[in-house]
């Protein structure tokens, strides 16, 4: 069970959240296919610390950003994202 550190609500149970996945750095819309392929399909799998977003659906209803070690589930909170 993950205890996710929400910057608004404190540590909360994972069942209150929806997963948003890795924070993606998308290329320009006009970029070629291979650039988009790398951006969408080939995440950096070598770093076990993943920068990702969660939506606190049963809480503050905000997207939050965290760093998580996917080997141990240790969290390092970073920031809150605005509602937009």
């Amino acid at each position: 069970m993950l205890l996710i550190p929400c910057p608004h609500c404190g540590e909360r149970d994972e069942s209150e959240f929806n997963y948003g996945g890795r924070v993606a750095d998308f290329p320009e819309l006009q970029a070629d296919m291979s650039t988009w392929h790398r951006a969408i399909h080939l995440p950096d799998v070598n770093d076990p610390i993943v920068n990702e977003v969660w939506f606190h659906a049963s809480g503050c209803e905000c997207w939050i950003q965290v760093n998580r070690d996917i080997r141990t589930h240790e969290f390092q909170p970073i920031d809150k994202l605005d509602h937009s």
Binding site: M1, L2, D13, E14, S15, Y19, G21, R22, P48, V50, E52, R68, I70, R71, T72, H73
Partner: peptide, 16 residues
């Protein structure tokens, strides 16, 4: 479990 993990440790949320 629905999120990235190589922990080989199941989440109680999914079990429940």
């Amino acid at each position: 479990d629905g999120y990235l993990s190589t922990a080989r440790r199941g989440s109680f949320a999914r079990l429940e």
